[in-house]
Amino acid sequence: MNSSMPVGKATPNEPILRAEGLTKAYENGAIPVLHGVSLEVYPQQTVALCGPSGCGKSTLLHLLGGLDSPDSGEIVVRGQPLRPGRMVQTMLRHHVGFVFQLHNLLPDLTLTENCLIPTVAAGVPRAEAMERLHQLADRTGLSHRLQQRIQKLSGGERQRTALCRALMNRPSILLADEPTGALDEATSRQIFALLLELVDREGITLVMATHDRALAARCDRLLEMHDGKMMDSAGSGARTAG
């Protein structure tokens, strides 16, 4: 890939997400995790990030989504260099959705209330938010559970709820960190199929950390990580939006 590509508004031929030489260490440098990671992700691609536990997948996703800052290196999202503060705020509200291994829902609130949180943060009008929620609930088979508290939902339903919440504000990028890692085999397949269907239908770019090879194989690209480095860039070519 040509990393001297001009910075500007993302077009299908420009990466929607680009990282250049990211390094990150925890505990004041005592625990080095990322050693110069670079990647480019094109619009509407689905990218699997594979590698053994502890190799730095979660750390990388957090940096890409602005939840944490790299020690060095640069991240460019939709043509804009990522800066902490207001820009991250805007990004989390409008452009990037997160799904984690643990659903990270608020257990005392209902499914609806949980899903409305990002819309409240972004100031989306209530009616519009509800319309979007019904649409997503319909697609994820949760329509009959809308008023249910999270506590009463099954593991699969919770993860589907987390998926709905991540997509409420129509992000262009979804960062998923082992989204099915806490589920049993069968549920895991279901949720993953649903995930792929949704990102495909809405034209969302997906970056997903996983160590499930079978799931990874169904993505457009597979990035292999080991000890905080990208192993090879096989299959890293741009994909035509489909």
């Binding site: 939840l67 705020q89 989390l92 997160f98 990270n104 608020l106 949180i117 943060a121 972004a122 919440r165």
Partner: peptide, 15 residues
């Protein structure tokens, strides 16, 4: 944890 969840979902420090 709840505060972190709200942050990830776009809550600003002011909110």
């Amino acid at each position: 944890r709840e505060i972190a969840i709200l942050r990830v979902n776009g809550f600003s420090p002011i909110q």
